[in-house]
């Protein structure tokens, strides 16, 4: 084998060697556990904190309200749609939940809009139906129609 080819092969071997060392050092631990990505990332995403605790947790303490709600039209609604996420309140009861009295919140769902299916939701035109009044003066949001 000519000398220059031998030298070239040596250079190649050194280069490949360096690449292998770099690959060993730089590849994260769980790489290719499931595919060409860091397998540990899945666990890291899963460990994030959940903010909405869901209505079963609310009913643990607020059972009387849960009972009233279970007899009304809003039975399937999550408490936290109106009251906001409950994770801080669950840990510390001094952290108060939102209690929104103004009708903008109600109208988010119940405002008249041609695109909302009529058979799914009761809609009202807030400019005709007791304009400026708060909905909750007449309707109990936990049991709107009974």
């Amino acid at each position: 084998m000519p000398l220059q080819v031998k030298r070239l092969l040596l250079v190649f071997a050194i280069f490949i060697g360096i690449m292998l060392v770099l690959k060993y050092v730089l590849t994260p631990d769980s790489w290719r556990e499931y595919g060409p990505y860091r397998g540990n990332a899945i666990g890291e995403i899963a460990s994030q904190q959940a903010k909405y605790v869901q209505k079963e947790s609310c009913a643990d303490c607020h059972d009387s309200i849960a009972e009233i709600k279970s007899r009304g039209e809003h039975i399937n609604l999550q408490c936290e749609i109106c009251h906001g996420p409950g994770y801080q309140h669950v840990d510390d009861e001094n952290f108060k939940m939102e209690i929104t009295k103004n009708s903008t919140l109600c109208l988010q769902c119940h405002t008249m809009n041609a695109a909302s299916p009529k058979n799914i939701i009761k809609q009202i035109d807030a400019t005709e139906h007791n304009e400026g009044e708060e909905c909750i003066t007449c309707h109990n949001p936990h049991q709107p129609w009974l």
């Binding site: 909405y52 605790v53 999550q78 936290e80 749609i81 799914i120 939701i121």
Partner: peptide
């Protein structure tokens, strides 16, 4: 738990 958007959907 359910995904937040699925949980929050009233309908």
């Amino acid at each position: 738990l359910d995904p937040a958007c699925m949980m929050a959907c009233p309908t």
